[in-house]
């Protein structure tokens, strides 16, 4: 039986995500999908879901939700402010949610993208083979108080509330790397010695970031020529004439007009996406054998 999830507070940049739309780039449709695939798949697995079942994703300030029927959920991370009916919760383990359960996902400044998996996955409408919210594709691109979220009601299994003895804050340790592995992009060879040296500096992420892309704080002055629009992918790093470096993320456009100087493989993009503003990192450019 389908049950409705009431959204008391929508949180910040919360959306439903699955693995996204991988075969519609020729229509200009962004790929979308989990920003941190590993975290999302891991909590789906704990719950016994299909690994790409639709989950709720948010950034830092989590939504407040009320469940109209009982179900089971798993959270990727929690703080001591993450509560169900006022009781604290643990991350990465099955939480039994009773009918009427009020879940407050709290505020976690240490994790950029957090996830909630629900038994059998969220049952929102699939558009172009995916439930990932995207402007111009699904009805809305972000969760808001009137969003209609459905899930499959479950039998309540055990008496709930084992009181947690500790709370997990950290994302997976391999997401904390300070060196971001990447490949040279198609326009990499156009960089001069000085520009290449500039790429060796430490970088930080600016506040200009969303599901489309992340702008770095430091600039890379350059004399790269302007160019025709070319295909791009999540992970591509663009360099603008004013020196801005933009790491394209899951919701990026399919084509762009700036030189593509680097390309981050999936894992590096997830690492960078889970990096908070004040962390310094460097690019480690790996040649294709």
């Amino acid at each position: 039986m389908k049950a409705k999830l009431k959204i008391i507070h929508a949180g910040t940049f919360a959306s439903i995500q699955d693995k996204g739309r991988s075969s519609y780039a020729k229509y200009g449709v962004p790929r979308s999908g989990f920003i941190d695939k590993k975290s999302a798949q891991r909590i789906n697995k704990i719950l016994g879901n299909k690994q790409n079942a639709a989950v709720l994703e948010w950034t830092q300030i989590g939504p407040i939700l009320q469940f109209t029927k009982a179900t089971q959920i798993v959270l990727s991370d929690t703080t001591n402010k993450t509560t169900l009916n006022g009781e604290p919760l643990r991350a990465k383990e099955i939480i039994e949610v009773p009918e009427g359960g009020l879940l407050n996902l709290g505020y976690n400044p240490k994790v950029v993208y957090s996830y909630l998996a629900i038994k059998e996955g969220f049952q929102t409408k699939r558009v172009l083979q995916s439930r990932s919210m995207q402007k111009g594709i699904t009805k809305s691109d972000l969760l808001h108080s009137k969003s209609k979220l459905y899930y499959q009601a479950q039998q309540l299994k055990i008496s709930f509330f084992k009181k947690p003895t500790f709370s997990l804050h950290q994302p997976f340790t391999d997401l904390l790397a300070r060196t971001i592995d990447c490949f040279p992009g198609p326009e990499f060879d156009l960089l001069t010695e000085d520009e290449l040296q500039g790429l060796e500096q430490y970088f930080t992420l600016s506040t200009q970031r969303n599901r489309m892309g992340i702008q770095l704080t430091e600039l890379l002055p350059n004399a790269l020529p302007s160019m025709l629009s070319v295909p791009i992918l999540p992970g591509t790093v663009q360099l603008t004439p004013s020196g801005k470096l933009i790491v394209l993320s899951q919701d990026c456009q399919t084509t762009g007009g700036y030189p593509r100087i680097l390309h981050l493989p999936e894992k590096s993009l997830a690492q960078l996406s889970q990096t908070t503003q004040n962390v310094r990192f460097r690019f480690n450019i790996i040649d294709y054998d």
């Binding site: 991988s22 519609y24 780039a25 025709l228 629009s229 070319v230 295909p231 399919t254 084509t255 294709y288």
Partner: peptide, 22 residues
Amino acid sequence: ILDIHHAYHEVLIQYRNTIQNF
């Protein structure tokens, strides 16, 4: 092949798996 898209003068092919023998 997972997906192919192009612009004015470039075609980008995305394969399903990591490329072993380029």
